[in-house]
Amino acid sequence: CAFTHRPCSHPRLEGQEFCIKHILEDKNAPFKQCSYISTKNGKRCPNAAPKPEKKDGVSFCAEH
């Protein structure tokens, strides 16, 4: 993984420079932040999710 703030030993995603944990660092990657919002604390999930086809579409990470 090419994350520069600290060493990361996670494997890169195929065709990308970053792992799934750090892929949002790459603005050109086909990922965006997960659209899930917790009902308990109102916070948005920080994980990466595939970018949807539509610009305003929602997309969820593997956990959600």
Rank of each mutant, 00 (worst) to 15 (best):
N47H: 09
N28Q: 12
Q33G: 08
R44N: 15
C34I: 01
G15C: 02
C61E: 02
D26G: 05
E17I: 14
F18Y: 10
S59E: 04
I20S: 08
E63P: 06
T39Q: 10
E17Y: 10
F3Y: 07
G42P: 10
P11Q: 14
I20L: 13
A49Q: 03
H10R: 12
V58L: 13
A29S: 13
C45A: 02
F31C: 08
V58W: 09
L24Q: 07
G42N: 09
S38K: 11
Y36L: 07
K43M: 05
C19W: 00
K43Q: 13
E63S: 11
K32Q: 07
D26V: 07
H10I: 15
T4F: 06
R6K: 14
E25L: 10
P7A: 12
R44G: 14
K32D: 08
H64W: 00
C1Y: 00
F3A: 03
I23T: 06
T4P: 02
F3R: 06
T4R: 02
I23H: 04
C34M: 01
P50N: 09
D56K: 15
P52W: 13
C8T: 00
P11N: 04
K40F: 14
I37T: 15
K27V: 10
K43V: 12
F31Y: 05
S9N: 03
S38E: 13
P46M: 10
A2N: 15
R12G: 01
K40C: 15
P52R: 08
R44M: 14
T39V: 10
F3E: 04
C61S: 02
Y36G: 11
F3N: 03
K27L: 07
D26H: 05
E25R: 10
I23W: 04
I20K: 06
H5G: 15
F31S: 06
A29D: 05
F18A: 01
D26S: 09
K40P: 03
C8E: 01
L13W: 03
S59A: 13
G57S: 03
K40L: 15
S9V: 12
H22C: 02
K51P: 10
C1V: 00
S35H: 03
N28A: 09
D56N: 12
H22P: 00
Q33D: 04
D56F: 08
N28L: 11
K51N: 06
A48H: 03
K51R: 11
P30M: 04
T4H: 09
D26Y: 05
A49H: 07
G15M: 05
H5I: 11
S38W: 12
C61A: 02
A62S: 13
I37M: 15
P30I: 07
K27G: 06
C61N: 02
A29T: 08
P11C: 04
H64F: 04
I23M: 05
T39Y: 04
P11E: 15
R6E: 10
V58D: 15
S59I: 15
A48C: 11
N47E: 13
K27E: 11
P30Q: 04
P46A: 09
I20E: 09
H64S: 03
I20A: 13
P11A: 14
H10Y: 14
S59R: 09
E25Y: 13
T39I: 09
